[in-house]
């Protein structure tokens, strides 16, 4: 029976704090890309320009039907063969941003489709421009139903950051593996990784549901 060594935990703490910061950075950066890309994808899909909507639909389908790990490898290892040499960080953020952007575009689409046709018609009857109709009428109503999906994917992207360890991003998982290789201790480093993930995921889920209620209240949409 192997015993738990507290002194190791204290020793490793600074490295893990640093790695946790990088994990959050990867999740935050990837999510920012995904949030914007998802919006671009969904708006492209809503233009009635056939080649564009077709391309977007196929892209989203492709991303959703293949593993994230493969996409990470693809951007990092296949990219250079086409002259696209990227650092692990850049490649990792792009891959994760593309992946979650595709999923978020579906969340947005669901939100937008939940806005009744009558809202679009009322906006048109008031002669609102398309841009203003989105900004003032549709997006505020599409947002509350989309928030829980967006929140799930925020937690999801955070939990998927270990995938980036395989291309050398020094986030939590990468750090724990490095510690294991140096010291032949696995219990403490991996337990610490688990504890840190838990300590961030659980409050995040709670905060997201609070946020959703707050948005609904602020928009006056509580029934």
């Amino acid at each position: 029976m192997i015993e738990w060594r507290w002194h190791l935990v204290w020793e490793l703490a600074p490295r893990f704090v640093d790695a946790a910061g990088k994990t959050l950075l990867a999740a935050g950066g990837g999510y920012s890309i995904a949030v914007v890309l998802g919006l671009v994808l969904v708006l492209a899909q809503r233009t009635r320009f056939r080649p564009l909507t077709f391309a977007v639909r196929e892209f989203v389908e492709l991303i959703r039907s293949t593993p994230l790990l493969l996409q990470v490898f693809f951007v990092f290892y296949v990219g250079p063969q086409f002259g696209l040499v990227l650092s692990p960080w850049t490649a990792g953020l792009i891959a994760i941003g593309l992946h979650y952007g595709a999923y978020l575009s579906e969340v947005y689409r669901g939100g937008i489709e939940s806005v009744p046709a009558g809202q679009w018609e009322a906006a048109k009857a008031l002669n609102l421009s398309v841009v203003r109709t989105y900004r003032r009428i549709v997006i505020p109503q599409a947002l509350p139903p989309a928030i829980s999906g967006m929140g799930n994917y925020l937690v999801g992207i955070f939990k998927d950051t270990p995938m980036l360890s395989v291309i050398g991003v020094t986030e939590l998982m990468h750090t724990a593996t490095a510690v294991g290789a140096e010291s032949y201790r696995y219990l403490e480093p991996y337990t610490m990784v688990g504890a840190i993930f838990l300590a961030i995921s659980l409050p995040a889920a709670y905060l997201i549901s609070r946020f959703e209620k707050w948005v609904r209240r602020t928009l006056g949409m509580v029934k």
Binding site: P116, A122, K124, N127, I137, L219, G220
Partner: peptide
Amino acid sequence: RSKIGMCFQHFNLFPHM
């Protein structure tokens, strides 16, 4: 279109305003 206004059977007010 700016010369025309319309009221609908189901009102279609903006619920967030």
